[in-house]
């Protein structure tokens, strides 16, 4: 276990050390203490290492993550795991806005609530939120699964493409071109997988599914007034 104390050394030193690790590194387990809300902790990781951050973090934690497993034992600011490529990012508390924005792969788990714009423009990442999410979540979401065990705020899935949203609780007003769809056995199985990977206990048969009505895909001159 390699320990790094952010009260003793700056964030750039930490990220620089993590970036310089060779592929065959023996430093595969890291413990980071005293984050004190600092931004950009453990961004741009590219190796299958495990990083545990003990305390609350600021913006963009674990951004662009590839292969690594990052666990934040605390609360988290804006842009958690932004543009995640692969690997797993988990926060034990709440996360603020823009969780896994533009994420292309991997898994992001929020054990508390997530704020607004969760999964905005997601492109393949799986996001599992044990609590509720804020407004404008999954805006222009293209691919991947957004799983919300409790409630979703207003304008869910506005202008959504082919991402799939599963909601266990209530939804507010749905966004443009987002509709509720049938939840078949195939979808229950599709939902079970990310819940199990996330280690979140929830009954997949109790969820509702939302996705694109596909009415905004192409310009239609007859609908010119509604654009």
């Amino acid at each position: 276990m390699t320990e790094f104390d952010l009260a003793e050394a700056p964030i750039r030193e930490l990220n620089s050390r993590l970036h310089k690790l060779p592929p065959d590194t023996n430093e595969r387990a890291w413990r980071i203490v005293n984050p004190r809300g600092a931004h950009s902790i453990a961004v741009g990781l590219t190796l299958p290492i495990e990083v545990r951050i003990e305390g609350h973090v600021g913006y963009y934690c674990a951004g662009m993550n590839k292969e690594a497993t990052v666990v934040i034992d605390g609360q988290c600011g804006w842009g958690l795991a932004e543009n995640i490529m692969s690997g797993t990012v988990r926060v034990t508390g709440n996360a603020s806005q823009g969780v896994a924005a533009t994420g292309r792969g991997g898994l992001v788990v929020v054990e508390g609530d997530a704020g607004a714009r969760c999964g905005v423009s997601m492109k393949g990442v799986d996001i599992v939120v044990a609590g509720s999410i804020g407004h404008m979540s999954a805006f222009m979401a293209q691919r991947g699964r957004l799983v919300v065990c409790c409630d979703a705020g207003d304008d869910l899935g506005d202008s959504i493409y082919e991402a799939v949203i599963y909601v266990g609780g209530k939804t507010g007003r749905l966004g443009a071109d987002c509709i509720e769809k049938e939840m078949t056995a195939e979808h229950v199985a599709d939902l079970r997988a990310p819940l199990e990977r996330a280690g979140i206990e929830a009954d997949p048969t109790k969820f509702r599914r939302f996705g694109s009505a596909r009415k905004l895909y192409h310009f239609n001159v007859d609908h010119a007034d509604s654009y």
Binding site: G37, H56, A116
Partner: peptide, 22 residues
Amino acid sequence: SEYRSLAGLPGVEDAKVWEPEP
């Protein structure tokens, strides 16, 4: 505006921390 401003407050480790809803 950001948590790092609160990080030095006495007892913040055990505080309830949340984002105010719109």
